[in-house]
């Protein structure tokens, strides 16, 4: 499924490639049915009241009722609203959140561990490579050719792969992503993966997710980060394991090329 073209989007929720997305979408649906119900009911009542109790010109006998509504129906209704809120809150929102944002899986449990670092105005992706260990990074090394400030002569860094605005990951695998930023606050958002998280300089936040389908989508930035905020777009691609490995090899090639070049 290719979600990089407008055609892929309808008017309501975007398509969903993620395993966990359904949990989020359900709550959105439930809440909106609930809200629609309340709104229609209330507005209906409102309009009925306005018509029924409008001032009738020239009707001398018409007087307002000093006491107004006598029943306690509204209290029960309010209680009902509260109950629904509690059910959605305790029954759905809190548990789903705990699962999505609670305890990250241990790195060794994840099938792929990557770092994503936001900068004005691009997304840097850092793959640890075959050894599964990230090379050291050092902010003082950051420059145009080394946006992540990777210490390339560090052993662990030798096989590392970095890309810009290109994020590939395999389908049906547990992905663990460490998110941070170099300069200002950004927000990493893959809306067809239902993943959103602020990227905050100075602290690293873990994210984990799994795709249920292969496909392509856009990474957008959801936090105002300057004049380029609107064009801080990246692409992600959910590949089959084979495609992913192939792509990795490709990137390694390219990286090698560069290394000789220096």
């Amino acid at each position: 499924m290719d979600a990089t073209t407008p055609e892929a989007f309808g008017l309501w929720l975007p398509p969903d490639l993620s395993v966990h997305g359904a949990g989020i979408d359900n709550i959105i649906w439930i809440m909106h049915y609930f809200m629609l119900f309340l709104f229609v009911g209330w507005t209906g009542f409102l309009i009925y009241t306005l018509i029924r109790f409008r001032e009738r010109k020239g009707d001398a006998t018409q007087t307002a009722n000093y006491y107004g509504v006598q029943t306690h129906a509204s209290s029960y209704l309010e209680a009902a609203i509260v109950i629904v809120e509690v059910v959605v809150l305790v029954g759905l929102s809190i548990p789903v959140w705990a699962e999505l944002k609670g305890e990250p899986p241990a790195p060794n449990r994840a099938d792929l561990h990557v770092r994503v670092v936001g900068e004005q105005f691009a997304w840097n992706v850092h793959y640890p490579g075959p050894d599964g260990v990230f090379g050291k990074t050092d902010a003082s090394l950051v420059d145009g050719s080394n946006p992540l400030g990777v210490v390339w002569d560090d052993e662990a860094a030798k096989d590392d792969i970095t890309t810009i605005n290109q994020f590939h990951f395999p389908v049906e695998r547990k992905i663990l992503l460490d998110l941070t930023s170099k300069d200002v606050i950004h927000a990493f958002w893959m809306n067809v993966m239902r993943v959103k998280q602020d990227a905050i300089p100075g602290n690293t936040v873990p994210l984990w997710f799994e795709a249920k389908d292969t496909g392509k989508g856009e990474i957008s930035c959801a936090q105002l980060c300057g004049l380029g905020h609107y064009r801080m777009k990246g692409f992600f691609s959910v590949d089959t394991q084979e495609e992913f490995d192939a792509w990795m090899a490709e990137q390694a090639e390219a990286a090698q090329g560069e290394d000789d070049y220096y």
Binding site: I24, I28, M31, S93, V96, N191
Partner: peptide
């Protein structure tokens, strides 16, 4: 609700 807020 924090969970739908992830999308919104």
């Amino acid at each position: 609700l924090a969970t739908p807020d992830i999308h919104l």
